[in-house]
Amino acid sequence: MTALSRRSPGNQISGNRIPVIHFRTRRVRNAVLAGSALLLLSVWLAYESASLTNPAWTSGWVLGSVILFLTALSARKRLACLPLFPVSTWVQAHIHAGWASVVLLALHVGWHWPNGVFEQTLAALFLLLAGSGIWGLWLTRQSPKQLAKLPLEVRYEEIRDRRRRLDEHVHRVVLQSAESTGVLADFHLEVTAPFFGRSRGLSYWLWPGSATRRRIETELSLLDRYLTDSQRQVAKQLALAVRERDDLDFHQAVQGRLKLWLFAHIAMTYSLWALIVIHVILVHAFRGA
């Protein structure tokens, strides 16, 4: 329609018009902000160093504040109804502050690997946490795309129940066909029953894929020449069930992996905080030395 006809008279129910910022623009803006902050801090630390002041105090406290801000994300998530900027804004800030914190750590330790065992443990845990953050960022960007490709959308809590119902359905279908054909019954006993009965291994959880499903589908298609038309319908149902089960497993693995990552990331954060507190106490205790 034309621009003319788009205009509507008054008394219109106002919908929810949302401001939209292009993701790329947002990314660039946030990176520039984080980079500028780091640059300013570097200049200040260089000034402190030139003034014969230990810059580690400033960088340490700034780093601690940044880690505190990074930790505050989980608190913000719990307070969804407060107008403290949307959680997505906090996540963006979390990502960029996370990158910046790695550079801050380098500034704090003077671009050298620390020499004390405790400091080494602290730095290693920090880097592990940062690495986990990077992996999590990759996961949160890739996993939705992987899941969206599936023809099935399912909530994590429903997977177990749907899988149970699918198992029962397959069992029923194969039992009904067993009177007329032993081929499918044998195939079920040897191939599909173990597939439906077992959980996937660790490797599948780490890198879920469709190789097993494709193998079963190929084997099932090879039985085609032994089957009558009605038995082929049963085989088709079996193939559909295999595909659905595979999709459910994929959902469980990908969604579960995300949940596990978040749990590990938060656990490491609190472990890091325990070490940071000890570090601060030690630093202040031995300040004179």
Partner: peptide
Amino acid sequence: PSAPACQNACPHDALVRI
């Protein structure tokens, strides 16, 4: 004070009320 909670809570800008 801040509405809607669902949209505000989405960490990845995936959800919108539109």
